[in-house]
């Protein structure tokens, strides 16, 4: 049995007179014990998808199951089994760390003691602040507490909606390590993030854009399947360079990428010499062949659609 299945999920919102399609026919499934990432920019429809799966929102069309239960008809079962961490910090800010944790434990008819082993790694970092109101924690600590509260009833499926947004780099790394450990405990995890670099940490990812899944595969397969040659280009005048790259015949796509511009070549025009020849006038030219990462693949997929 799959942890999550979704078939042709559609959802649109009415915004005044115009209708916004938040999800257009999304289908996917998550295996048990899998860490599945939902990667996409803001407004791709990630949160809407999450809210449908955790039974907070009804889809217009389509079917979905979580842990084998149907999201519409069997929602009480799902609510008993899943852990949900919304994108926005949603714990009681005026209750202390410990009180929040105990409250969520009790409403799931369990106790902190019973499932302490699940949260131990995370909670030890929070313990010094146990009596501090949740609202007065730092951003990273808040996320850790939210994760603890989502885990305290030993969920079978964990939904984490942008858990690392607004969290510093160190905390982000720690957070992902925790997710890996949770996965080893047999918890299936669906996580969304706007950060492409986090994608490689998932077992499988779905690239999401404009309410659609562009591609679903393991991050390794996705990058491996990127066939076209890719070069990182840098010069003294980056703005002019991008302009020039975009006009070149043999280049399919060019976009800024960190301190370089990435240039995706059309097949057959895949030589550094071609680039050098056309960019000869640019000062301090630097050209490196690079391997595509998730972000390159994402941009590539977006172009296709």
């Amino acid at each position: 049995m799959k942890a999550i299945t979704a078939e042709n999920i559609r959802k649109s919102y009415k915004n005044g007179k115009e209708t916004v399609e938040a999800l257009r026919s999304v289908s996917f499934s998550v295996d048990r014990g899998e860490l599945f990432g939902c990667i996409g920019p803001d407004g791709a429809g990630k949160t809407t998808l999450f809210r449908i799966l955790v039974t907070l929102l009804l889809a217009d069309e389509g079917r979905a199951t979580v842990d084998g239960f149907e999201v519409v008809k069997e929602y009480p079962e799902i609510r008993r089994r899943v852990g949900y961490m919304p994108g926005r910090f949603s714990l009681y800010q005026d209750l202390s760390v410990q009180e929040n944790l105990e409250f969520y434990a009790t409403i799931f008819r369990t106790s902190v003691k019973e499932n302490y082993h699940l949260i131990k790694d995370i909670y030890v970092q929070l313990e010094p602040f146990a009596s501090r109101p949740a609202g007065k924690l730092s951003g990273g600590m808040k996320q850790k507490l939210a994760l603890c509260c989502a885990l305290i009833h030993k969920p079978t499926v964990l939904f984490l909606d942008e858990p690392t947004t607004g969290v510093d780099a160190v905390s982000r790394k720690e957070f992902w390590e925790m997710l890996k450990r949770l996965k080893q405990q047999g918890i299936s995890i669906l996580v969304s993030t706007p950060y492409m670099d986090e994608a490689s940490l998932c077992d499988r990812i779905a690239m999401m854009h404009d309410g659609q899944f562009l591609k679903t595969d393991s991050p390794q397969n996705i990058t491996r399947n990127f066939q076209q040659p890719l070069f990182a280009v840098k010069s003294g005048d980056m703005f002019e360079l991008l302009h020039r790259l975009k006009k070149m015949e043999g280049i399919q796509n060019a976009y800024p990428f960190g301190e370089y511009h990435h240039a995706v070549m059309k097949s057959g025009m895949d030589t550094e010499a071609y680039l050098r020849e056309h960019l000869a006038e640019s000062p301090d030219l630097e050209i490196l062949p690079v391997r595509a990462d998730i972000e390159d693949c994402f941009i590539h997929e977006m172009q296709k659609h």
């Binding site: 955790v54 039974t55 907070l56 009480p76 609510r79 008993r80 899943v82 949900y84 919304p86 926005r88 910090f89 949603s90 714990l91 009681y92 800010q93 969520y104 409403i107 799931f108 008819r109 509260c149």
Partner: peptide
């Protein structure tokens, strides 16, 4: 407003 109701709604309450 704070969003706590979302979290509560995804519980057996």
């Amino acid at each position: 407003e704070i969003g706590t109701i979302e979290q509560i709604n995804v519980t057996p309450i």
